[in-house]
Amino acid sequence: MDRHVDSGRTPSAGPAGPTEGGHHRRVTFILAVVVLGFFGFGFALVPLYNSFCKLTGLNGKTGGPVEASAVVGMKADRAREVKVGFTSTVMPGLNWRFKPLHNYIVVHPGAVTRTSYLVSNPSNHAETGQAIMSVVPGRAARYFKKLECFCFHQETIKAGESRNMRLVFFVSPHIPKDVRSIIVSYAFFPVKKHT
């Protein structure tokens, strides 16, 4: 390594002249804006990703509730059958028992169907949970329409209480013909109440 020592000039005094400096500032500024833009893009990915999921059924995410009026005039396709299975999961932190009333129901696309999940809280204190639903196969998700679902709100179950959670749904007649079997999952997550 060279060890010549001489302090004739400050090393920070760049050789770039003032016009060059201005030139640098402009490009730097543009690049800094680009960096910020991509930083924002990172956050924008959250809603983008969610709408992408809804659109493609990635993760089996289904949409929000369907207005009752949407069903008016809808005809059930008696020629086709879709087997809808149900499964349930209780996440750690909740002491509930939670299971579907039916393991599966065979429905006609377009026919409004009612079923329910049974939930009970055998512990000695009230607990609050939020149900997250998903559907497999993912591409069936956007054809699974809910008129009534306990997954839209948090649910509080009192100690010792048992409850029937209603689910009213239909499978859209537009569902691809080759999807003949779908499984609906509900998972109850605990909601921490800050008291």
């Binding site: 930083f39 893009f41 990172g42 939020q130 997550f189």
Partner: peptide, 29 residues
């Protein structure tokens, strides 16, 4: 320049999930 900022955004969300009660990566929220 294109890909590091989104990672920084991602770890910011992670940090928020860990300490500020957000739910970017938690199905429950």
């Amino acid at each position: 320049i294109a890909v590091f900022p989104p990672l920084v955004a991602g770890v910011t969300m992670l940090l928020a999930d860990r300490h500020f009660g957000t739910h970017f990566f938690n199905a429950a929220g």
